[in-house]
């Protein structure tokens, strides 16, 4: 390319410029998108955290110092929303273990119809989330819900549980729904991770006399650990931002579920900004979302460090 004579050189140079320009143009749109819809809102959000604002009109914002942050940490409802968020995050490890277990069943030697089972197990993931949530709401309904119908049929009328209006039954029911809809994805990931483990390792282990449990602990578990790590990280990030299912149930039962037990952190932010803007407002909600973001950041870093330590 470099040893071309003078006259075409100009042409090639121009072509090179054009090449570089078109490459840049092709690469840029996502960057512009991030700048407009990610970066700028982040700056604004940081600024808003220190303002008092009760409408959607920027010009009415008033500097409030750290008062939003102080007020948030003094609000027992916020602390409760953190507790709720962590509580519902229990579904993450449950989904990981169930996903792993079911994927192991599917990967066992001699099982026929793997494709069929896999297709079925993945269905909850592709289902409309709101429809799923409504469906489970109705299954758990106290008077005509199917679950209570079945319980009453089996153990008599006294066996009916008020799933949606008492705190712990509500939490249990919500967790069941979260696990039900969260497992399919993990099954698929684990199944392909297990399939990717080198088969020769098992043969070698068998020759060395390792039993099934040892084979699992030393070969399979190690082979799928990157998948597990990915699921833990994604599960935590997603768990912190839990909203849809919680809000749909919560809004049906006394604005936040029994004793506000549906209110996760994002639900809390949503309520402060959109449901009660006059009392709390945009600045307050922005400050809360920064606290949430910092928590996600810190916990993600902790998880990454734990992994490093485990390796060392």
């Amino acid at each position: 390319m470099k040893e071309i004579s003078a006259n075409p050189l100009v042409r090639i140079k121009r072509k090179k410029y054009r090449d570089a320009a078109s490459g840049l143009l092709m690469a840029l749109p996502p960057v512009i998108g991030f700048f407009l819809f990610g970066f700028i809102p982040q700056l604004v959000s940081l600024w808003l955290g220190f303002q008092e604002l009760h409408s959607f009109d920027f010009s009415q914002a008033q500097y409030a110092g750290f008062s939003n942050f102080v007020a948030i940490f003094k609000d027992p409802a916020f602390l409760k929303s953190i507790g709720n968020t962590f509580l519902y995050m229990i579904s993450t490890p449950v989904c990981i273990f169930l996903g792993m277990g079911i994927a192991l069943l599917l990967s066992a030697k001699g099982v026929k119809g793997k494709k069929f089972f896999r297709s079925v197990f993945f269905i909850p993931y592709v289902c409309s989330v709101v429809a799923t949530t409504v469906m489970w709401y109705w299954i758990f309904e106290k008077d005509f819900g199917i679950l209570n119908g079945i319980l009453a049929g089996l153990f008599g009328e006294s066996a009916r549980v008020n799933w949606l209006e008492e705190v712990w039954p509500f939490r249990t029911a919500l967790l069941i729904m979260l696990v039900w809809s969260g497992c399919g994805y993990n099954i698929i990931l684990y199944q392909s991770a297990i399939a990717a483990v080198d088969k020769n390792l098992y043969e070698a282990a068998e020759i060395d006399g390792a039993n099934a449990r040892q084979q699992f602990c030393h070969i399979t578990w190690a082979g799928i650990s990157p998948t597990t790590f990915y699921m833990v990280v994604m599960g935590v990030i997603k768990g912190f931002q839990a909203f849809t299912m919680h809000q749909i149930w919560g809004s049906q039962v006394g604005g936040g579920g029994p004793d506000q037990s549906a209110v996760t952190m994002v639900y809390y932010i949503y309520e402060k900004a959109w449901v009660t803007p006059f009392r709390y407002g945009m600045g307050y909600a922005s400050a809360a979302s920064w606290i949430l973001a910092v928590m996600i950041g810190v916990i993600t870093v902790i998880i990454f460090n734990l992994k490093k330590k485990e390796r060392a």
Binding site: S45, L48, I237, I269, A285, S286, S289, A293
Partner: peptide
Amino acid sequence: TMMIPGTITLVSSYLL
């Protein structure tokens, strides 16, 4: 940018 959770900008995006 993939690492930044979208919920930080929930309120500010709405205002913008």
